[in-house]
Design a protein around this nucleic acid. Structure first.
Lengths: 190, 190
DNA sequence: TTTTCGACCAATACCGCTTTTCGGTCGAAA
DNA sequence: TTTCGACCGAAAAGCGGTATTGGTCGAAAA
């Protein structure tokens, strides 16, 4: 039962990656799972529902990957660096895999963003926690943790944007670390 | 001759702002300038050409505004703050004025960006110069001015992005200054 | 020589229409 | 509990013909 559901998700993910969300029909999915279309509806109540589930699972894997990357480092600074570089690298891989979906990106952008909302919310929490940790350990000097983590999020969004625009020969690790140098040290002379 | 050309640009700007680029026809422009359509083509070789010229002049005004804002301040930090807050405020105003064009934004996004390329290039130069000034005056501590100015640009892009997404009740000055606090001071404890 | 414009062209948008496709439902059968 | 064929309404796609639109050209003003 659950494995059938899982199978549908995996097939759907493949098809979405290959043809994009719009061009993939429920028939396509059903056929490839060797089911009637109606049977697929026994497991999912809509096409959007399948998509949401695909994204959700991807996000879960992504988050686990981020946690692992953060956990093998020790200082707060290294943790944040690990978080950001891993995030950017993963995003670059993703944009290759989902090349078709990237073209549709602008279209159902809002929809994807809504599904991703949980991810972003969580990201903010993680960043805030890492900041607080650094403050406690006296390696960071931040008084408004909420605002600063928001600004860091925005700066990362900027990185993400230039990743999408400059596309090729973009080194996400180098780029991330340069941004992080700025974020950690600032430019003021003290 | 040049005033005729200028007149076409101004009329076109009005129409673009009101109806957007696609909905504005060459006939519309010609009629409002009291000319035959062919005559407009005597002054401009294409519709795109007119659009480019409109953007170019807007950009020039924008740049002058930025220069003025920077010039009435004295310290390098204040100059950068003036630059960024003015930039963001102006952008917000622009997005209201060109509300129709904003809807089309996604469509000929790449086209607009290409026209704006000069602006971004110039922005990088200005930021670099302001950074160098600050380094000389010993208020900034930056060794790779090129990289840092690039990163500041990217962070600003992030701000711009959140301006477009969050749209209403967005306070560009507050947002800018919070980002600038981060950029100037960093988060590392020293 | 500079400027204006009517006539014209090809590509594309638009229109009313019909047909097809697609997401989704339902009831029956396995 | 699970599968599926038959079916539905809405939206998309196709289509032939017409109108619009960006752009050209050569002739006539100025």
């Amino acid at each position: 039962m659950d494995d059938k559901k899982q199978r549908i998700i995996e097939i759907a993910e493949q098809l979405f990656a290959q043809y994009g969300f719009l061009k993939t029909t429920m028939e396509d999915i059903a056929k490839k799972v060797h089911m009637g279309k109606s049977s697929v509806y026994y497991y999912f109540k809509s096409k959007d529902d399948i998509f949401v589930e695909v994204i959700r699972q991807d996000t879960l894997v992504f988050q686990k990957k981020l946690i692992d990357a953060v956990n093998i480092t020790s200082t707060p600074e290294d943790k944040i660096r690990a978080y950001v570089t891993t995030r950017m690298t993963h995003l670059q891989d993703l944009s290759k895999f989902y090349s078709t979906l990237t073209d549709e990106y602008l279209d159902h952008y809002l929809f994807v963003e809504e599904v991703r909302k949980d991810f972003y919310d969580n990201e903010n929490i993680v960043l805030k926690k890492l900041l607080e940790e650094g403050v406690k350990q006296n390696s960071f000097d931040v008084d408004d943790v909420v605002t600063i983590s928001r600004m860091i999020s925005i700066a990362i969004k900027g990185l993400e944007f230039s990743l999408f625009v400059e596309a090729k020969d973009y080194d996400p690790v180098k780029e991330s670390n340069e941004m992080l140098d700025l974020i950690f040290n600032g430019i003021a002379n003290r």
